[in-house]
């Protein structure tokens, strides 16, 4: 059965799109037929991160009846399939929300995993993205505003009957973060399933339009995301040794929540 997983955060700029894109690539490299649906239009950068901008047929065209969903699915790096949004789901709702359900059904048929990059905030479009999925990955940075929004998002997801797989802590800075992993876990009452370091490579990769897991698979960040992907589907993952010694130790430390 296809899994529909929304990556949501509440607060914007915490790395949802980065994680969705890379996780999508990771899952496809494990052989899962993965479709990433971009629902984050205000910051429509999923395509940028995957180096696939400028696609002319978007979800919007599909929903307004001008194209079929097959035309809006593009193949990206690592074999991940991507559906660009084109317009906010809120906008879509006004046009043809019934069609969105049809589209989701179609996407579900064609994939093993449908990943939805949710918009920030808790506006209608964000809620639609949350409600559309059965499962959710919560992304937060180890900072108060982000955690506080994540908490809100979590509670809403609970209300909507969405299973929360866990929280991904992004941009963890060894020794320098506001809250510890344990503290975040305690506050959110959701297990931490991944800790992704704060890594300048992330922005660099985005600028290159190449997902980090492909551009630099040895980096701790890539390893963390690959591991997350593996965990999601119950696969084994052997971290790729980075050239620099000690980084892995740091990563493991990070994953264990040590400081």
């Amino acid at each position: 059965m296809t899994r529909v997983i929304t990556v949501a955060s509440g607060k914007g700029g915490v790395g949802k799109t980065t994680i969705t894109a890379n996780l999508g690539v990771a899952l496809s490299t494990y052989g899962e037929e993965t479709i990433v649906l971009d629902a984050d239009v205000a910051m429509a950068n999923l395509e940028l991160i995957l180096g696939m901008e400028g696609k002319s047929i978007t979800l919007h065209d599909v929903l307004s009846g001008e194209a079929s969903i097959d035309e809006a699915i593009y193949e990206g790096p690592g074999g991940v399939k991507v559906v660009p949004a084109g317009i906010s789901l809120e906008g879509l709702r006004k046009i043809k929300l019934d069609r969105l359900e049809e589209v989701l059904e179609k996407l579900v048929e064609e994939s093993d995993i449908l990943l939805i990059d949710a918009p920030a905030g808790l506006e209608k479009d964000a809620l639609a993205a949350i409600a559309a999925a059965q499962e959710m990955i919560l992304v937060t940075t180890p900072e108060v505003p982000s955690i506080s929004d994540a908490l809100k998002t979590k509670i809403i997801a609970n209300k909507l009957g969405v299973d929360i797989i866990g929280v991904v802590i992004n941009r963890e800075q060894h020794d320098k973060t506001f809250l510890t992993i344990e503290e975040i876990e305690t506050i959110l009452e959701v297990p931490v399933i991944s800790v992704i370091p704060d890594d300048p490579e992330v922005s660099r990769a985005a600028a290159f339009g190449e997902p980090l897991v492909i551009k630099n698979p040895k980096s701790p960040t890539s390893n963390a995301i690959m591991q997350l992907g593996a965990d999601l589907i119950g696969q084994e993952y052997q971290p790729i040794e980075p050239d620099k010694k000690g980084v892995i130790a740091k990563l493991i430390e990070g994953l264990l929540g040590r400081r």
Partner: peptide
């Protein structure tokens, strides 16, 4: 709750 910290970090 806006946080400039992330930007500046």
């Amino acid at each position: 709750d806006y946080d400039v910290y992330g930007v500046i970090k």
